[in-house]
């Protein structure tokens, strides 16, 4: 009596139940990022959102992408964002956020983005993707470093340029007249 593909009573596949749960957590925490008043809590909700996204990657049989998601987005980027917020904000400072004064412009941007996404989703033919396939790590590496090695290297040069630019900006501010 092994557990089958579908849950016993409700008749929905386990993978679908997990996906719905993860998606609910992701959307809920994404809403919290935007709606919460405390900016640190917004940042923490963003970490939850990223973690749920990593869970969806695991569900899609892409463990490498999931691990990279946790390592890079939670372990590095979110932590750096929190770090920056903590260095610049104090508890005694204004509690209301600055960016909530720009709600009209944000609403326009959100509506435009939603339209673009809706058009893109509507225009894509989803019939081809019916089957989950496991992305083996070594296959991914082979494709990345064999077929797509030129774009990969170009991206790394781009990142290098960004790093040099950041160093330049930081340096100039330090040596300039105060």
């Amino acid at each position: 009596m092994a557990l089958g593909e579908t849950a016993p009573i409700i008749g929905i596949a386990f993978a679908d139940i997990l996906f719905v749960m993860l998606a609910a957590v992701m959307l809920g925490s994404a809403l919290m990022v935007v709606l919460l008043r405390d900016i640190i809590r917004s940042g923490l909700a963003m970490i939850v959102c990223f973690a749920a996204l990593a869970g969806i990657y695991v569900l899609l049989q892409a463990p490498l992408v999931a691990a990279a998601q946790v390592l890079v987005y939670i372990g590095a980027i979110s932590v750096l964002i929190l770090f920056a917020i903590m260095l610049t904000q104090t508890k005694a400072g204004p509690a209301r956020l600055v960016f909530q004064t720009q709600s009209a412009a944000a609403a326009v941007a959100a509506i435009v983005l939603a339209l673009v996404v809706a058009v893109a989703v509507g225009a894509t033919d989803w019939g081809e993707v019916g089957e989950r396939m496991h992305t083996a790590t070594d296959t991914l590496a082979r494709v990345l470093f064999d077929e797509f090695v030129l774009p990969f290297e170009v991206v790394s040069v781009l990142l290098l340029a960004a790093v040099i630019g950041a160093v330049y900006l930081a340096k100039r501010e330090e040596s300039g007249p105060s």
Binding site: L44, I47, P63, A67, A68, L71, I74, G75, V79, L82
Partner: peptide, 13 residues
Amino acid sequence: LLYFFAVGGLSVV
């Protein structure tokens, strides 16, 4: 190994 580093990075949060 990647999983280990990813999870270990969570403690800083």
